[in-house]
Structures are given as structure tokens and as C-alpha cells.
């Protein structure tokens, strides 16, 4: 156990190192990315430029600059932005993280629950109109662009029907911290959650349905029926439980990617200051410290999510426990 943990930690450090070096090198190899002139401002005098260069350490060799940046990011945590002078990036990220975490977690709960329901019902009624209808709905969900769906949701709940009894409870766009008001938090996020979940519901319901259909042809499903179990029990206890394995690995990847900033579009449409948006701003401003911080943050979450999926695997599949 301890060995596995240490191994995982070692891997994480290795991955973080690799990614950070890559980001760092790509940044300095990008033409026009030189931060000195942007920090100093247009038409700055050579003296100012020289001063900035010295102050930010741009005159030092790259490895030294890299080491300094890593030290400021991880140890002293006082790395400052190139774009907004004096702004510290770590607190910025810490402020954005709960927003994204709330958005992704809530959306995930919805999409997991709904897609399990949809996939299971579709598989149970395989080949009937129920199956076809559910899968068609899923397909529509997959094909709707999130951005468009978000805009329409806003149009309906914020503008057009905001004054009707149906949507008058919807607060203005933006995030309400959970600690401030749990109800407010929920109200502010429920529509973004649903919007985010729509895409995933279609994909997950399809994957689960097809896994369930495949598994229903397996010998052990026949054994379960031959034992005299009810069709519901056969499907849920033997079929669904066995089919969750693909579902979970898919979930691990998608969830990590969302936590790491992949929910950018949803964040933008609903005015949520999350990690996705922060990364986007950092990239458009070519703000290396912020880019570096958010990339490191995403990488940590991807690694964490993978570790979590491994743990769930061990729980779900005894064959994994024995290392088979």
C-alpha cells in the first residue's frame, strides 16, 4: 500500500516536472511572447526595459529562471502575473478552484445518475420504442453545442421568462460561495449543472447501454437467470454491476478534465469565474505564471482522478485486486 502510494507520488512529480518544462520551453520559444516589453509597456525607454528585465530575472539563464518560477509557485507561492502587475497567481487560482469544483461535481452527479437510469432502462427495453426514444434523446444531447444551449437557457431563465413564476427564482449570472449560502449556491448552479450534464448524459447512456447489451449475452447472465432470479435483479445486480467498469474509467477521465479547466464554455456562458476561464485569460494574455499555475493545477487533478479511478476499480473488480 505504502509502496503504491509512493510510486504514485513519484509518478505525479515526474509528470508535473515534464509538463512544466514543456510549458516553459514552449513559452520562450513562441515568437512575440517575450514578456519584458509587455510588462514594461509600449515605447518604454531602454532603461525601463533593462530594469524590468533585471527585476523579473529575464536576463538570467533559462534553467535558473525555471527553477525560480517553480520555487515561487510551489514553495513561496508568491508568483506574480506578467499581465497584471503585482497580482499573485496562486490566490487567484485558489479563488477559482471552488467554482469549477462545484460546477463539475454537481454536473457529474446529474449526468451519472441520469445516464445510468437512461442506459439501464434502454437496455432493459432493448429494441423497443422506449430504447429508441431514449437513445435519440441522448444523441440530441450529444449534438447540441454547450455554448448554444447555455445561451438559450440564459435567454429563457434570465430574460424572456424570468418574470414568470417558473423562473423568477433564478438568480443573476455568477457564483455564490457555498459557505455564504448553500441555497444560493444551488440556485446559481443548477442551470449550469444541467447544461454541462446534457452532453455527457448522451455519451454515458449510450456507452452503458451497449455494455449492458454485450454483457447480457454473457454466460454468467444466463446462470443468473437459470437460478430463478427476477429479470430486474439479473440486470441490476449482475449486469449493471459488471458493466460499471468501463463507465468508471470514462468518468475518471472526463471529470478530471473538467476539474482541470475543461468546463471553459459553460463557465463563460454562465459568468462563472472558474479555472477554465482563468486558463483562457492567461493564454490570451500570454501570461506565463498564470498559465504555468493553471496547467500544474490541472495536471495534479488528472493524476488525482486517475488514482481515484484506480481505487474504484479495485472496489469494483476483484480481478484487478489480484493484479490480473
Amino acid at each position: 500500500m505504502l509502496k503504491a502510494l509512493l510510486q504514485r507520488f513519484g509518478q505525479t512529480v515526474f509528470v508535473l516536472f515534464g509538463i512544466s518544462v514543456l510549458v516553459f520551453l514552449v513559452f520562450f520559444a513562441t515568437p512575440g511572447a517575450d514578456p519584458t516589453s509587455r510588462i514594461a509597456g509600449k515605447n518604454a525607454s531602454p532603461e525601463t526595459i533593462a530594469k524590468v528585465r533585471q527585476e523579473y530575472g529575464f536576463d538570467r539563464p533559462l534553467p535558473v529562471q525555471y527553477a525560480t518560477m517553480m520555487k515561487k509557485l510551489f514553495i513561496t507561492q508568491d508568483l506574480t502575473s506578467y499581465a497584471n502587475r503585482g497580482e499573485k497567481v496562486v490566490p487567484e487560482l485558489i479563488k477559482a478552484a471552488p467554482v469549477t469544483l462545484s460546477l463539475a461535481t454537481g454536473g457529474a452527479v446529474i449526468w451519472v445518475v441520469v445516464s445510468i437510469l437512461m442506459g439501464t432502462v434502454a437496455a432493459a427495453f432493448r429494441g423497443t420504442w422506449i430504447d429508441r426514444t431514449l437513445m435519440a434523446i441522448g444523441l440530441i444531447g450529444i449534438s447540441i453545442p454547450v455554448f448554444w444551449l447555455g445561451q438559450v437557457a440564459n435567454l429563457i431563465t434570465q430574460a424572456r421568462y424570468h418574470d414568470t413564476w417558473l423562473f423568477s427564482w433564478v438568480p443573476a449570472l455568477g457564483y455564490v460561495p457555498f459557505a455564504e449560502s448553500p441555497v444560493g449556491w444551488f440556485k446559481a448552479l443548477i442551470i449550469p449543472w444541467c447544461t454541462l450534464a446534457v452532453l455527457f448524459i448522451g455519451v454515458y447512456a449510450r456507452v452503458l447501454r451497449s455494455d449492458l447489451v454485450t454483457v447480457s449475452g454473457e454466460d454468467f447472465m444466463r446462470t443468473a437467470r437459470a437460478k430463478g432470479l427476477s429479470p430486474t435483479r439479473v440486470l441490476l445486480v449482475h449486469g449493471l454491476r459488471t458493466s460499471m467498469i468501463t463507465f468508471v474509467s470514462l468518468f475518471g477521465m472526463d471529470f478530471a478534465q473538467l476539474i482541470g479547466g475543461g468546463a471553459l464554455l459553460t463557465e463563460v456562458v454562465f459568468g462563472l469565474q472558474g479555472v477554465g476561464r482563468l486558463t483562457y485569460q492567461a493564454l490570451s494574455a500570454l501570461d506565463l505564471p498564470l498559465i504555468m499555475a493553471s496547467v500544474m493545477y490541472s495536471a495534479v487533478f488528472v493524476v488525482l482522478a486517475n488514482a481515484l479511478v484506480d481505487v474504484i476499480y479495485i472496489f469494483l473488480d476483484p480481478r484487478v485486486r489480484d493484479g490480473r
Binding site: 454468467f220 430463478g228 427476477s230 469494483l316
Partner: peptide, 25 residues
Amino acid sequence: FRHIRGREIAMIFQDPMTAFTPVYT
């Protein structure tokens, strides 16, 4: 029929490797 299956008439199959659900003891 479910009361007959398993209780009155039981069945075993060719391949014992795949006949048990892999995730339960």
C-alpha cells in the same frame, strides 16, 4: 416459471470459467 428455475430444475453449463459473475464471491 422463476419458482421452478433453480428450485425444481437447476442447470449447469459447459464453461465454468465464465458461468459465475466475476465481481462476486
